[in-house]
Design a protein around this nucleic acid. Sequence first.
RNA 1: GCGCUCGUAGCUCAGCCGGAUAGAGCAUCAGACUUCGAAUCUGAGGGUCGGGGGUUCGAAUCCCUCCGAGCGCGCCA
Length: 592
Amino acid sequence: MATSNIFVQILDRVRKASDALIAAGILPAGIDFSRVSVEPPRDPAHGDMATNAAMVLAREAGRKPRELAEALAEQLRTGDLIGKVEIAGPGFINLTLNPAAWIAALRTAVQLGPRYGKSDLGGGVRVNVEYVSANPTGPMHIGHCRGAVFGDALANLLDFTGHKVTREYYVNDAGAQVDQLARSAFLRYREALGEDIGEIPEGLYPGEYLKPVGEALAAKLGNALLMQPEAEWLPLVRAKAIETMMATVRADLAGLNVKHDLFSSERDLVEGNIDRVAESIKWLRALGCVYEGRLPPPKGAPVEDWEDREQTLFRSTAFGDDVDRPLRKSDGSYTYFAADIAYHRGKIERGFRTLIDVWGADHGGYIKRMKAAVQALSDGEAELDVKLIQLVRLLRAGEPVKMSKRAGEFVTLREVVDEVGRDAVRFMMLFRKNDAVLDFDLAKVIEQSRDNPVFYVQYGHARGQSVFRNARAAFPDLPADFADPAVLAEASLDRLSDPAELSLIRQIALYPRVIEAAAAAHEPHRIAFYLFDLASQFHAFWTLGNSAPHLRFIIQNDRQMTVARLVLVQALVTVLASGLALLGVEAPNEMR
RNA sequence: GCGCUCGUAGCUCAGCCGGAUAGAGCAUCAGACUUCGAAUCUGAGGGUCGGGGGUUCGAAUCCCUCCGAGCGCGCCA
């Protein structure tokens, strides 16, 4: 796939210029080109693009940056892409492209349509993205949803950039929490049989969402469970409760349009044919990464029931962690970490060398040991990137929404989606860096104003589509498809020469670069910010038409100009729709 | 005490794995509707990028240190 990233195309030109200098003996052969970049300058007066090549290569070449810049500039002046080459500051080479180069970029965008911005950056490498992985102990709330949307968008983005992505959900269906879930459900079962259960005891789940589980059990089994000891009824009730909760979670995710390829069960790791946790520990022990030993007592907040005892430890300090980490609890069962090791080992065994985990920020202290485990499990060949998702503060018109976790009263994801819509939730969750706290204001996100970025961007798309509707009324014989190469070849795109038009085209041409950077950094929020900027430029250009009628999209007596402008609008809606699709947000044709 | 994530305009935040004179929105003030959607746009004021060192041709960005905030610190997940 040839890149549609015009910055990469120009970087190739710079590389060719360097090659020419190598041939001329001005640069040494095999010089390190890796730090050379071509980027848009902050100040438009510096041209369309700037390269740091002369400054970066100067040292190794043993030449002054400006002198080298002169030599490179001379080479860059050849060819038809670049119109103006200037040397500035300490050795920047500022490039101004010929308008034809921008027009070509515009044509590319329209012609590729939904494929514009796609790249083979990932080279088909398999990437495992694990996200949500919320405990099946209740419906999803607003906190879970940010990680869900983030993971989903990141997976979309990686897929778009040539990675083979598997989307996973790790179901924590083992351990003490789901046992407590089972006990809570059992109370609801007794309640359903007519018993007065009073208050739900501390430590259990008080939410009313478990009532249907109790009722279903009562309807199906009558009072059969009441006679049994806990050891007998618990697995049964637990399975029913988990099944019901996971069905809820899946429905909640579907409501957000968050997709997963695979739900992996923690319980299966232990209760399958093979105890994969024991197997993983044994395997690591053979490598010398697991041993029996003692840990120093924890610092900071004193632990009341601390007892010094020998235990099974993972040697995470060998991989940069602060202390070695226990794999078994005092009752002999595995720690969460031990199971997670087995789970990640499974990912590696399935062939993944790039792992991405999306976690809540409160799990930050867990990163080092998990990375250490992945190092040990893969002999250093797999890489784990953990994306921490900061907390969401739910507001209504600036006031915090009251929630009491103890009473089981929290605003569920479903309620939020029902109130403000999936698009608003998804876009806002991505309109912030993942590691920064996010304020989500239920009142603001449904505002129809510039203050609300969701609306602002979607309105940009709708406005673009309205141009087509109006244009077809004015010129009934317009081409059906502006992405048709024949239409594009015939259109007089060189008439798009106003500075405002070229500025909009430049922003459109930036899209592939933004996509690649966002994918490389695992930061989908960059797309959201880019779309906001793009919409902003479009709205600005639109308003120019108010006072300068010749800059309107539809020129009644100039069909040729109208077609050229429609191609520009086509590019705009193409990119807005593409970016919004990556974020999982609708691109509406009208906002009414 | 240690570790992690942070600290950018009055407020909310961007700042593209080191680039040139640090950007946007809100708020404030001043403007643009017989308009292809004014649900929008234009302009102005507003900054020691928490403080201080260091690396570099060049630092909001990398390193050290201090200050401040949030999160975490066997046998919860």
